[in-house]
Design a protein around this nucleic acid. Structure first.
Lengths: 327, 327
DNA sequence: CTCCGTATTGCAATCGATTGCAATATCAAG
DNA sequence: CTTGATATTGCAATCGATTGCAATACGGAG
């Protein structure tokens, strides 16, 4: 069912039908009603591809998510999709794998689909290859980065101050009398690197020795194994900060298995404030890195851009420690 | 950069360029190479909208996800997207809200984007309104339902036998000497209803009195509150089956707060086998309802359909209890 | 009854591809 | 130097919309 079919049946030209569909003036009210009825009757839906071809617009926004394990990113992506849908835009949510190639391919895919804007969920997109791909494929479209920055005029940033936040975690434990606070960090990503820097800042400021275990696998088992080894080697550890909540969950289990209590013997803090915090026992104190709130902020700024309003290129959200039972 | 730009620069017609792009025969090898080089040099990417208009294909598959809280559905959706990407298809992942209207609107959106197939993640799509929307908007395209069936020739189903699985859970507890097993169920959905029927089957078969608490909020707090109330009223409960793992997590906390031990005093089983199972303490025994595996199966069957191979309209996956510490 | 302004409507080009068929080029054989 | 077969290439229509401009219809004033 195309506008030509409708036009034939209504005894008018396609132009007139198009004017009715797009609520444009210059159509006799009676004709308009007649066509409206036909449109309704045949449940006409426009072909977005054809429409986009002539209007040079797709009403599509690309959302790239790298880590599907990150509940926050996914929820953020869906929130963005929802907000956009309200405005008649459609989110093209793509998951890109772990490599730079795949991420660049994702951006090229957005180009062939002619998206009008893009969102990159996560600091993992902050690489040279992605920068080049954006400069090549989306030099005009507004691109929003979550937790990342890029020196391109069309790239906007929404980030949370994870470095300061993690430093705050160290200070928080130091104030509560912890003397030896270790840091468990997963595979290096820009985000985990920031957290590590924050840990180092905090430890230096508190005059505390630094103890970093890196390369921890991002799973309950990974956290368990790392914490078990740590406690065996450094039995005097009385505080633990983890770059992922899920690692903290595994670590707490290891602590319990080593006949220590959380938080009395070892206090534990995660840095995601994820749903896991309320599920594990004891409930996990965690740094709210505002990932979800960032998604909300991105959706709003994106819509501002798309509707021609201006927005500042960088938005910083402040973190906060959410105290639960593990400290 | 369009094929016309390339054609002009190469001194040939657009047809020739198109033949090169699509690897079609009938082009002088030397010309072909020259055009290939130009394509590369200008990083030509085809406009999918224009291509789709003439070929009447979009290489787009719509994936509708209703409940973003369901980690399985999201992972499944991403897995599907990944498989499709390998074959040159692009997944249009849409989240539809809670109402029938929104779900029907999602299907209509798929129609305007001219998707070649659709996937509905979850039993929640098994409604009359969705059926009508499919019959209207996607009467030809293959539609895959996860955990749902529909009497339309183009709707395929991949489901897990949750009813039998939940009955197995009751039997499992009965065999281990539990006398009074209750069932906590969330807001009614086709899926939770099946689980409830399974519980009733199992209880009847084991000659056990039935004790169903329904309308439980699907959260840790919801499970906590429901279990707390239950234990106060029915102190003799020694087994608990929950329609959602997250409810089971809350329930285990309530049991601990009521000075009972899991599993010694009350055994608990969830019915999602989600990531939460390994995070809570004690680790939660749960029914693997194969949601993730179903996603995999759907991806494969979808690709079969798209490539012209035939598949059976209904695939049943069998559930299994994954034993952990809560039983 | 003519003329003019305004309200409707349609024509035709355009967007960026694909593709059947006609046209031209190339080359070897006779 | 034809002729015919085959290899390249281009023309033009098509997909389903949108839109500027030209054309027609209508109505009232003179």
């Amino acid at each position: 069912m195309t506008i030509y079919d409708i036009a034939r049946e209504a005894g008018v030209s396609a132009s007139t039908v198009s004017r009715v569909i797009n609520d444009k003036p210059g159509v006799n009210p009676r004709t308009r009603e007649r066509i409206r009825a036909l449109l309704e009757e045949h449940r006409y839906v426009p072909n977005e591809a054809a429409r986009g071809l002539v209007t040079q617009s797709s009403r599509l926004v690309g959302v790239l998510v790298a880590d599907i394990r990150n509940q926050h990113h996914i929820e953020g992506a869906y929130y963005i999709a929802q907000e956009l849908a309200k405005l008649g835009y459609c989110a093209l949510v793509l998951n890109t794998g772990g490599s730079d190639e795949e991420r660049a391919a994702g951006i090229r895919m957005l180009e062939t689909r002619k998206v009008e804007a893009a969102v990159l969920m996560g600091s993992i997109f902050q690489t040279e290859a992605v920068r080049d791909a954006i400069a090549c494929s989306l030099p005009e479209a507004p691109v929003f980065m979550l937790n990342g920055e890029m020196d391109l005029p069309n790239v906007y940033s929404v980030l949370s101050d994870d470095r300061a936040g993690t430093a705050d975690c160290v200070a928080y434990l130091a104030e509560r009398g912890r003397k030896r606070v270790a840091f468990l960090v997963d595979q290096p990503t820009p985000s985990s690197h920031l957290k590590q820097l924050g840990y180092e800042d905090g430890a230096a400021r508190a005059g505390m020795a630094q103890l970093v275990i890196d390369g921890v696998e991002g799973s309950v088992e990974g956290g368990y194994a790392a914490a078990k080894a740590l406690l065996a080697q450094q039995p005097d550890v009385d505080g633990l900060i983890c770059s992922l909540d899920i690692i903290a969950c595994g670590a707490m289990r290891a602590i319990a298995d080593s006949d220590r209590r959380v938080p009395q013997d070892v206090a534990v803090i995660g840095t995601d404030n994820s749903v896991y915090c309320d599920i594990c026992t004891p409930r996990l104190t965690s740094l709210n890195t505002m990932v979800f709130e960032s998604g909300v902020a991105i959706a709003h700024k994106l819509v501002d851009c798309l509707e021609g309003r201006s927005t500042n290129r960088k938005t910083m959200l402040f973190t906060g420690i959410v105290e639960r039972e593990s400290t």
